[in-house]
């Protein structure tokens, strides 16, 4: 029997937005921690750390997110964690975000003039104080706009978690479509919901980028 595409079906899809947001939030929070570690390793004085972090970044930038999801999903099963879409999607997206945010933030750290580190060294500041008080606060200002930009990519990236059975916005759309067979309407609604999530963030990123450009011009 073919169900009509009515108000209940629409609400089911809209409600799934919360899982897209939850997964995005987890991946972003985890990616922020991992990204900071990757960024600091990439600019480390220790050569082994630099190469390790570079390898990690290259691996995740050089493979599709979908493959990363599959590998984590099936990998967790091999290591006895069972079939768990929540865990797999969270972990895979966190690893993915760590690599990308790490690379974005490395660039921001390197954009802080070297004179800032030299002044810190000359004053006798150690590594932790130099990073915490001098370099990272200045890098953070530069990082805000591209970070929000990446968040938009991440939110859209969560749609791939539908393939491993994680019921978020896209998966909810598939479920409803399988019952109603009005794919254009269903996925049209799904697309609009993604747009409503992402567009304001894009605007925010652009606004922050422009504000930063004005701030650095003087």
């Amino acid at each position: 029997m073919i169900r009509p595409f009515g108000i209940d079906e629409i609400l089911f899809i809209v409600a799934a937005v919360q899982w897209t947001l939850a997964l995005s939030a987890i991946a972003f929070a985890g990616g922020a921690i991992g990204g900071l570690v990757v960024a600091l390793a990439r600019v480390s004085q220790v050569r082994a750390l630099r190469y390790l972090a570079l390898g990690y970044v290259r691996l995740f930038q050089g493979t599709p997110l979908l493959m990363q999801l599959f590998l984590v999903y099936f990998g967790l099963n091999i290591f006895g964690a069972g079939i768990n879409p929540w865990l797999a999607a969270s972990l895979a997206l966190t690893l993915h975000a760590s690599a990308f945010l790490g690379e974005i933030w490395r660039g921001c750290i390197e954009a802080v003039p070297s004179g800032q580190s030299e002044a810190s060294w000359a004053l006798g500041l150690g590594y932790v104080d130099r990073m915490k008080s001098i370099v990272l606060p200045q890098a953070a200002k530069i990082a805000v706009a591209p970070t929000v930009g990446f968040l938009v990519q991440l939110i859209k990236g969560t749609s791939l978690a539908s393939i491993i059975g994680f019921v978020e916005l896209t998966r909810a759309g598939q479920i409803i479509n399988n019952a109603t067979f009005v794919p254009f309407k269903v996925f049209g609604l799904v697309a609009i919901l993604y747009f409503v999530l992402c567009w304001p963030l894009s605007l925010l990123a652009r606004w922050m980028e422009r504000r930063f450009a004005v701030a650095t011009r003087r």
């Binding site: 004179g115 002044a119 000359a122 004053l123």
Partner: peptide, 30 residues
């Protein structure tokens, strides 16, 4: 480095801190 002061051509003050904080930072941290 703790006992040798340095002044640079490009000043290299910390732009995100007030003048006072610039002067206090190393006293407190180092």
């Amino acid at each position: 480095r703790r006992d040798v002061g340095m002044v640079f051509q490009q000043f290299n003050l910390f732009p995100h801190m007030t003048v006072l904080r610039n002067c206090m930072l190393a006293l407190m941290k180092v």
